[in-house]
Amino acid sequence: MTVMTPVLEISGLGKTYKSGHVALSAVDLTINKGEIFALLGPNGAGKTTLISIVCGIVTASSGTVTVAGHDHGRDYRAARTMIGLVPQELHTDAFETVMATVSFSRGLFGKPRDPAFIEQLLRDLSLWDKRGSKIMELSGGMKRRVMIAKALSHEPEILFLDEPTAGVDVELRRDMWNMVRSLRERGVTIILTTHYIEEAEEMADRVGVISKGRLILVEEKNALIKKMGRKTLTLNLAEPLGAVPEELAQWKVELAAEGHELVYEFDSQAEATGVPSLLRRMSDLGIQFKDLNTKQSSLEDIFVGLVHESGAAQEQAA
């Protein structure tokens, strides 16, 4: 990425529902033009509330949202024109045809008719052959494509995808990611929520983790993996051990597979990982191993760890 231009600035955003449920509290987030941002979090963490506020569907209790310099309250027309939303649920007009509903969305966002653009859009999403079909006749996957076509019909510069691949078959998932890539090439900013963490790992430039309404972390994905990344060294022992020898206690190693494996977890970024000294000490003790492997922790491991940590911290505070 060249120059970072913020396209979406969220500041101090909070949402407390009438029931007293705090869905979001003091969220600050800046999204840069052209990036793919993945918002991760367990169900009920506030992902959809955050998206709904930015898109104008839910009213915030506090805070501001600015879309390319336009306040999304005062200057909502300019702000909303730039945004396309694919919601999580398949909300469609059953009796409308694919063509009619996609053209409707374009009109709704104030864009002039452009049959050539709509045709290309439907072709890109493999919907062209179905353009005359009523939505109720389509499969779930096809309906999902229609939702995407509607969101893209007014050529938005920011696209929100709320759980885009939940309940979607492999083919559509692949098509969807191809589409996301080509949109990014055209400079469209994409913000997606997912709990398929491997998708965030594969696609996103940056990752945000949200838990219980708080944005607990925003980080470049690679930096995150590097920074938080812990590695595990597993040694397959030649002879099983009954217990960890006292001489190895300082490495906090653990036995696994009924004493056949010795597991050592370490920080791969630390100056002294402790690996060479551990191996030397083992050789001094005459503990032999047949094989060894190291494994980098995935985004998923990091994510689960973070959410647990934040949960525990909040409980302590309470």
């Binding site: 898109c55 104008g56 569907i57 702000a79 909303r80 469609t92 966002f109 509607k150």
Partner: peptide, 14 residues
């Protein structure tokens, strides 16, 4: 009822 109201609310419509 169908949920399609999301689109009207997110559109640049007063």
């Amino acid at each position: 009822w169908t949920g399609t109201i999301y689109e009207m609310l997110s559109a640049p419509m007063s």
